[in-house]
Design a protein around this nucleic acid. Sequence first.
DNA 1: TCCGTTTTCTTGAATGAGTCAAGAAACGGT
DNA 2: ACCGTTTCTTGACTCATTCAAGAAAACGGA
Lengths: 145, 145
Amino acid sequence: MRVVHPTPDYPQLLRGADLRVTRPRVAVLGAVHAHPHADTESIIGAVRADLPEVSHQAVYDSLRTLAAAGLVRRIQPAGSVARYEARIGDNHHHLVCRSCGTVVDVDCAVGEAPCLTASDDHGFTIDEAEVVFWGLCPACSPTRS
Amino acid sequence: MRVVHPTPDYPQLLRGADLRVTRPRVAVLGAVHAHPHADTESIIGAVRADLPEVSHQAVYDSLRTLAAAGLVRRIQPAGSVARYEARIGDNHHHLVCRSCGTVVDVDCAVGEAPCLTASDDHGFTIDEAEVVFWGLCPACSPTRS
DNA sequence: TCCGTTTTCTTGAATGAGTCAAGAAACGGT
DNA sequence: ACCGTTTCTTGACTCATTCAAGAAAACGGA
Ligand SMILES: [Mn+2]
Ligand SMILES: [Mn+2]
Ligand SMILES: [Zn+2]
Ligand SMILES: [Zn+2]
């Protein structure tokens, strides 16, 4: 079995979401695909490798638009700035290092989205169950003998 | 069976955590007990009912110290300012309204803390599994017939 | 109770991610 | 190519939270 990861056609993804295709949006979408869980500043840096003149506001606007359209997901672990990823629609979860802030993906252990049911929904209409595992990454863990 | 909720002895709680007993700390601890999931601004307001002259910085410092000592828990759902609660040590979870930001408690549906195990820990040393259910509270839900 | 040391609080300024707003440029349907 | 609409640029601004320096309070020992 062979899993293929063709480079996504970003303009097509944008059109499919009824969004205008602009150079900043294409570059931002590409940067998010290339740098999972990157924060806005990193994305601005990556985008400027292609478009040296993009404004930070264009990146902020693009990220917001892409997130609203469901083309990217925005996450924000407590104490962190916003981070973005292109892995969407699979309700996966995250492992966050308390020391360095590194974020890694964790497949949902239970099932489909939402993967968990609240014991008492208090009358809420729940649409997502977000799980964040906190701890220390290998690099930040105290070395054992 | 009778469940009693005696008013906690805040000075004693502080001493037990090896913290100096100061008026701001006692008041902040009381405010967090009285107003679960309140944000810092609300806590400042509540504390000033007792101590009209406390500085906002004293409240920020107290909250940080109390959280570090484990006497209160700090939560910060994405897009929200920091919120604090005194219900600690039971690994309960939260239900957050996407519209008004209301936070309510949800008992852990699975078990003891951490109530979940990551499918792959990537070498991390995990110490907490945080679950946030997102949705709309009854007041914010579109009314049905 | 008084003292000295240490911690905490007050005051005021600073930080920084993110937003707002107005005009210029780009997109895309005709 | 033209034109109406959306998006981008520029620059100012917000606001939760932090930083820093000196004044006040806490507390263990005398
Ligand atoms: Mn992810
Ligand atoms: Mn709670
Ligand atoms: Zn780490
Ligand atoms: Zn609500």
